[in-house]
């Protein structure tokens, strides 16, 4: 029990990630897949944010600039947070591309269910079999 509680941030990220993963793999609705992907990515952001934090530490803005030696235990690690800024940009662009794709798919097939689209494609390929 202690194992779970003391590392609760990891457990949350794992659970979130699995939820997202499940949605991406098993849902046939493309929007749901996309939502799953977003949850998946958010889980990773959470993971990175949480590894930068420390108990009793504050935001890494050093006010006393004359102090030469900084006690790093007093400040959170800013690097993972900064990394996540970049990662969020990447993820937003991925999301953007994905949504654009979905719009085009919807315009073309008038549906966002993967199996229906596949059915339509099959009928297109063999139009005169029946």
């Amino acid at each position: 029990m202690d194992f779970i509680i003391s590392k609760f941030n990891y457990w949350i990220y794992i659970v979130l990630m699995m939820i997202g993963f499940y949605a991406m793999i098993s849902k046939s609705n493309l929007v749901k897949k996309l939502v799953g992907m977003n949850i998946f990515q958010t889980a990773i952001i959470l993971f990175f944010i949480s590894i930068g934090s420390k108990k009793g530490a504050t935001i890494p803005i050093i006010q006393d600039s004359h102090v030469d030696a900084v006690n790093s235990a007093l400040y959170m690690n800013p690097l993972p947070h900064v990394l996540m800024l970049t990662a969020i940009v990447v993820m937003v662009s991925t999301f953007g591309v994905a949504v654009a794709l979905l719009i085009m798919i919807y315009r073309k097939y008038k549906t966002l269910e993967e199996d229906e689209i596949l059915q339509i494609l099959r009928n297109e390929k063999w139009p005169n079999t029946h």
Binding site: K33, M37, F40, Q41, I51, V97, A98, L102, L118
Partner: peptide, 30 residues
């Protein structure tokens, strides 16, 4: 033809791949 759907599936798979890579980076950083 199926390019849109293929691209979307590639996007999902590719993102999983990239996220795994990112996780790897995270663990190494830890």
């Amino acid at each position: 033809d199926k390019a849109l759907l293929a691209s979307f599936n590639y996007l999902i798979m590719g993102t999983i791949g990239a996220c795994f890579y990112l996780l790897g980076v995270g663990y190494l950083y830890i």
